[in-house]
Amino acid sequence: MGLTSKDLLGIQGITSEEIRLILDTAASMKEIASRDIKKVPTLRGKTIINLFYEPSTRTRTSFEIAGKWLSADVINISTSSSSVVKGESLKDTGLTLQAMHPDVVVIRHAVSGAPHLLAKLLKCSIINAGDGAHEHPTQALLDLFTIRERRPTLEGLKVAIVGDILHSRVARSNIFAMQKMGMHVRVCGPPTLLPRYVESLGVEKHLSVERAIADVDIIMMLRVQRERMGAGLFPTLREYSKLFGLNLDRLKMARPDVLIMHPGPINRGVEIAPEVADGPYSLIQDQVENGVAIRMALLYLLAGGQNN
């Protein structure tokens, strides 16, 4: 059994069975990280290109490490040092890369649908590493993987996603993924950072963070970006933190065994207090660690294995 598509463009394009396959594959990949020699020959002779149109530390590094541990050749292209600065279109950049016979292109881009455009143009596998405010499927998969390590039955779990839902591809991919796995999702944030029609995604909308986090199994905090302040979406970070930040006082409203997640990078003291981020139920470091395993699993499923 493998994935049906040559690409991973979003959670919306895959089934719950495929999600389970990816998570199960990642579990066996995770073991490699604990070895003394972190290298297996699985993808020897395969070429992976990381094409990042937006800055990224954890996602890009994690794809790079995943590829290298699987013995693939990994090439990183960031737009500040490529011909994109000379005005080359995505289509032409894609065709140029294709001529060099990559097996996988991992793309991050500021515009929704950019990976889909690339997937239509190129024969190789495309992995979406984040497109606009649309999807960030590998993040949602590593989040599910991280949750499943602590709560083996995903079905029925309740999650509150708190923060800037409007601009968050992490939120969308997680909403789609969690719903596919039978979880219940609430979103919470200032009304200006919630999409006007957010309930059409099948989530519960909360304006009170206290009510949103009461009785949930998982709280997922999202990064709030300073530049949204300038756009008039909320007055100040100070006020945001006061109304929506997750601190120890607020955490008392939640279940004592609630799991805390954050896709990073975190703003300590803004959306999450340092004591919470570093606290006993914080899974933030697990998320980063599991990111490598998930990406190894995807590279293996798309570029390696018996299907190729």
Partner: peptide
């Protein structure tokens, strides 16, 4: 258009 589809696709509506 701002609506269900823009919400899903993450486009500014």
């Amino acid at each position: 258009h701002e609506g269900r589809v823009s919400t899903e696709l993450g486009f500014k509506g």
